[in-house]
């Protein structure tokens, strides 16, 4: 086993925005089921929102992810109940591999937010009005930076706009303290793992 991985703390994220309007966008839209027949998450980025981005003849639509001004965006701005539906981890994986580092929205589905956390992607919430205003601003300023401060729970953009945001407390602690990667967290307890195993009657020689 290798040395434990250093888990970066995620205290703030900044970058240009990608506005994606609509409530209740489910994980089937984020990554359609037919793209689950793969052995790695690697190539999933290109299939994010595939059925929204391409029409039936595979021609690109005017979906924001197809527009050149958002090509390098890292902060996704969505509305309410984003990521509902199936629990597939392929959904945040596809977004991350497309280039997304943080998601700001009015609200998120619980499992989706948990899956994002396991990838170190913050899911930050703000009021409905603040979100719409931010989406409007991104459309007018596609090259403008948005800064998300996880620790202070604020989002700032433009000359001097700062809005109050909310990061779930467990998520904030995990991101800020760099304890969101459970593999790294648990790996450091090798001794305790062995002690626990040795006290379990069914753990013995061979397959038990």
């Amino acid at each position: 086993m290798s040395d434990s991985v250093a888990v970066p703390s995620v205290t703030d994220v900044s970058g240009t925005g990608l506005p994606l309007r609509g409530n209740d966008i489910d994980t089937d839209q984020i990554i359609p089921a037919r793209f689950l027949k793969v052995v790695t998450f690697d190539g999933l980025g290109q299939f994010a929102f595939f059925d929204q981005r391409y029409d039936e003849k595979d021609n690109p639509t005017d979906h924001p992810m197809n527009q050149p001004q958002y090509e390098n965006a890292t902060v996704l701005v969505v509305n309410s109940n984003f990521g509902c539906g199936s629990s597939r981890e392929h959904a945040p994986q596809a977004l991350m591999r497309w280039g997304i580092d943080a998601i700001i929205g009015e609200s998120f589905a619980e499992i989706f937010a948990g899956n994002c956390l396991s990838l170190g992607i913050p899911t930050v919430t703000a009021s409905a009005e603040a979100i719409v205003a931010l989406q409007d601003w991104v459309e007018a300023h596609p090259t403008g930076d948005i800064s998300v401060d996880i620790e202070e729970e604020t989002i700032s953009y433009g000359e001097s706009t700062a809005i109050d945001a909310t990061v779930d407390e467990g998520q904030r602690k995990a991101l800020v303290e760099g304890i969101w990667d459970t593999t790294a967290l648990m790996q450091s307890n090798q001794q305790a793992i062995e002690t626990t195993a040795s006290e379990l009657p069914y753990i013995g020689g061979g397959k038990s």
């Binding site: 790695t40 304890i179 379990l200």
Partner: peptide, 26 residues
């Protein structure tokens, strides 16, 4: 229970891990 993790969750020892072709390769 191995320990309680700093994130508040319990770390549990796993006695049997079953894997299949769809969710394990990643």
């Amino acid at each position: 229970r191995v320990t309680t993790l700093p994130n508040g969750q319990d770390q549990l020892f796993v006695g049997l891990h079953l894997i299949h072709e769809v969710t394990s390769p990643q």
